[in-house]
C-alpha cells in the first residue's frame, strides 16, 4: 500500500500566536495507508497542527506538504478532507443537503448516496441537522469528508461528546473505510481509542512530538512490567525489597508490583511466598502517556477532560 509517497510531511514546523508557541518544532512523516493517532493533553498543539495540514492556517516557520503538494492544493484536488471537532454544519439544512452542497463543490465527487451509506446515515438523510444527535451530526461530517474520496482523512477529536454506543458505531464506520487503504489521522485524548484503532501513535506535548511508535512499542517505553498476584497479609515495605521492584501497591489481598525483572520476581513469589493467581503484563499505553505528558490523560468515559484549551487559539 505504501508506494513511497508520504501522505503528510512536516519539517521543523512551528506556529506561534504572539508569545505562545502552540507548535514548537514538529518533524513528522506519515506514510500512505497508515492509521495514526495523535495523542496529547488539551493545548498540546494537535488542532493547530491539523489546521496547518489542512491549509486553514500557515506555519510561522517550517514546511507542511500533503502528498508533496501545498496543503491548499491538496484540499482543492480532494486528496485530503477532515472531520473537524465541532461546527461546520448549518442547523436548517438536512443531512442530505449538507452532503450534496459539499459534493457540488468538488469536480469529481462520489455519489451523495454512496457517501451517506458509507457513513451509515442513509436512514436519516432527510432529517434537519438541528434534529440530529451529536453522533449523527458527526457522521454527517464524516459523510461530507468522504465526498471527494480523499486519500487522507483527518479527524480532530471526532468522538468528543458521544456516548459509548455512538462512539463505537462511529469508529466501526471509520475502520471499515480505512480498510480500503485510506490514510487516517485522528487526534484524540481518549487513550482507549488510540490503542484500539491506530497502527501508530504520536504523542504530542507542549507543541512537540515526545513519542512515536505502535501502541505496544509506546507501552514498552516505560520500564518494567506489572506483576499482580493474590497474597494475603503482604507488607508493602517488604515487597519493595523483592527482585527488581520499583513500585508496590497492596489492596486487600491483591498486590500489584512493577518490576524491572519480572521473571525473577515471579519465580520468587511462586516459590518463596504464598502468592497465587499470578499475572504478568506489559505496561499500558496509558502508563507511558501519563509518564510523558504529566498525567493529563482522559479516560474514555470521563467527560471532564473535554473542555477546550486554556488560552490557546484553536
Amino acid at each position: 500500500m505504501v508506494l513511497g509517497m508520504n501522505a503528510i510531511t512536516l519539517r521543523s514546523v512551528t506556529k506561534h500566536f504572539g508569545q505562545v508557541r502552540a507548535v514548537d518544532g514538529i518533524d513528522l512523516i506519515i506514510g500512505q495507508g497508515e492509521v495514526v493517532a495523535v495523542l496529547g493533553p488539551n493545548g498540546a498543539g494537535k488542532t493547530t497542527t491539523i489546521d496547518m495540514v489542512l491549509g486553514l492556517s500557515t506555519p510561522t516557520d517550517g514546511d507542511v506538504t500533503v502528498f508533496d503538494l501545498h496543503p491548499r492544493e491538496a484540499v482543492d484536488r480532494g486528496l485530503v478532507s477532515a472531520v473537524l471537532q465541532s461546527g461546520g454544519l448549518l442547523k436548517d439544512m438536512t443531512v442530505r443537503e449538507s452532503v450534496e452542497y459539499t459534493a457540488a463543490l468538488f469536480p469529481s465527487a462520489r455519489p451523495v448516496d454512496e457517501a451517506l451509506a458509507a457513513a451509515g446515515i442513509t436512514a436519516i438523510a432527510d432529517r434537519r441537522i438541528k434534529d440530529c444527535s451529536g453522533g449523527e451530526q458527526q457522521r454527517t461530517r464524516f459523510a461530507m469528508a468522504l465526498v471527494p474520496d480523499p486519500e487522507l482523512i483527518i479527524l480532530d477529536e471526532p468522538t468528543t461528546g458521544m456516548d459509548v454506543a455512538a462512539r463505537r458505531a462511529f469508529w466501526q464506520a471509520i475502520h471499515a473505510d480505512a480498510e480500503q487503504g485510506r490514510t487516517v489521522v485522528f487526534a484524540t485524548h481518549y487513550l482507549e481509542e488510540a490503542e484500539t484503532w491506530a497502527d501508530r501513535v504520536v504523542v504530542v506535548r507542549a507543541g512537540k512530538v515526545v513519542a512515536d511508535g505502535t501502541p505496544a512499542e509506546l507501552g514498552a517505553m516505560t520500564a518494567g512490567r506489572v506483576v499482580r498476584a493474590t497474597l494475603p497479609d503482604a507488607d508493602p515495605e517488604q515487597l519493595r525489597t523483592l527482585p527488581g521492584v520499583v513500585e508496590a501497591e497492596v489492596r486487600g489481598t491483591t498486590v500489584t508490583l512493577v518490576s524491572t525483572d519480572s521473571d525473577a520476581l515471579a519465580r520468587h513469589l511462586l516459590t518463596q511466598t504464598a502468592a497465587r493467581d499470578l499475572e504478568v503484563a506489559g505496561r499500558s499505553l496509558e502508563d507511558t502517556f501519563v509518564a510523558l505528558t504529566g498525567g493529563d490523560a482522559g479516560t474514555a468515559d470521563d467527560p471532564t477532560t473535554t473542555e477546550t484549551t486554556e488560552g490557546l487559539p484553536r
Binding site: L56, V75, D76, L84, G87, L90, L105, M144
Partner: peptide, 13 residues
C-alpha cells in the same frame, strides 16, 4: 458562527 465558512475552506470553493 456555525463554522460553515471554515468547512467551505476544506473544499475547492
Amino acid at each position: 458562527a456555525a463554522g460553515w465558512s471554515r468547512q467551505l475552506r476544506l473544499t475547492p470553493a
